[in-house]
Write a protein that binds this DNA or RNA. Sequence first.
DNA 1: ATAATAACCTGAGGGC
DNA 2: TGCCCTCAGGTTATTA
Length: 270
Amino acid sequence: MPELPEVEVTCRCVRRELVGRGIKRVTVRNPHLRFPVPPEIARLEGTRVEAVDRRAKYILIRSGGQTAVIHLGMTGHLSFPDPAEPPGKHDHFDLALDDGRIMRYRDPRRFGALLWTDGDPMQMRILSSLGAEPLEPGFTGEYLHQRLARSRSPVKTALMKGDIVVGVGNIYASEVLHAAGISPLRRGDQVSLEECGILVGEIRRILEDSIARGGTTIRNYAQVDGSRGAFADCLKVYGRENENCPRCGGRIQRIVQGQRSTFYCSGCQR
DNA sequence: ATAATAACCTGAGGGC
DNA sequence: TGCCCTCAGGTTATTA
């Protein structure tokens, strides 16, 4: 169940393992992911990986002028197991490398995806209408304010939608709004320019801090080597219903917005 | 056009 | 042990 930090941590590890390696074989055991896995994915066989990039929560493996696009959905995980390890029932595809190792994708809920293109991946439907990368310079308070000004939905929902800013999922949406002192219930067009500047700063700080700690493990998420993400220990409100707010001592509440849990403190978030 | 909501899946955990 | 319920780091398709 990865958000931007968890995908970035996964992406960096995959990059280290794959760049420069040849792809010997693509084995798809179950093509029924979020979208059907296209048969063209087999055309990666015999190519050499040039780069591994991330856009939003998608991992882009560029090889031989083609691109494999991987999304981890809620329960997707990449690992490099012993090639002799028999695949489990949720191990949906492997990339076998020219050094004898394999990269294996596991995803019990199958909300993830494996897509393919030989064109510009940014023109793919899933990537073409995404919002700003939160860690890139273009994501500023002015930008956020201008985009939120047209949103009548709650700011938490707007942050998670992905057309304004990408990578902020359910955990970090609660965390960044708490850090910025803004209620998740506030309408997007009621967030001031000054508050947007604060919010942008908190989004950057929290996402970068989480990346540095290997992401957030609450239940399923694990890094490529299987270890947990330590940012879970830094969460201030997520999963802390009825605990005291570390900033003002108020009672942390859990509400539901857009069918997702939101955690916040009504004492210090307005 | 925008915003709410239903849907896609499996598994873990709690109450009875 | 088993059944039924709720919940889970996401996104898309449908409805209003």
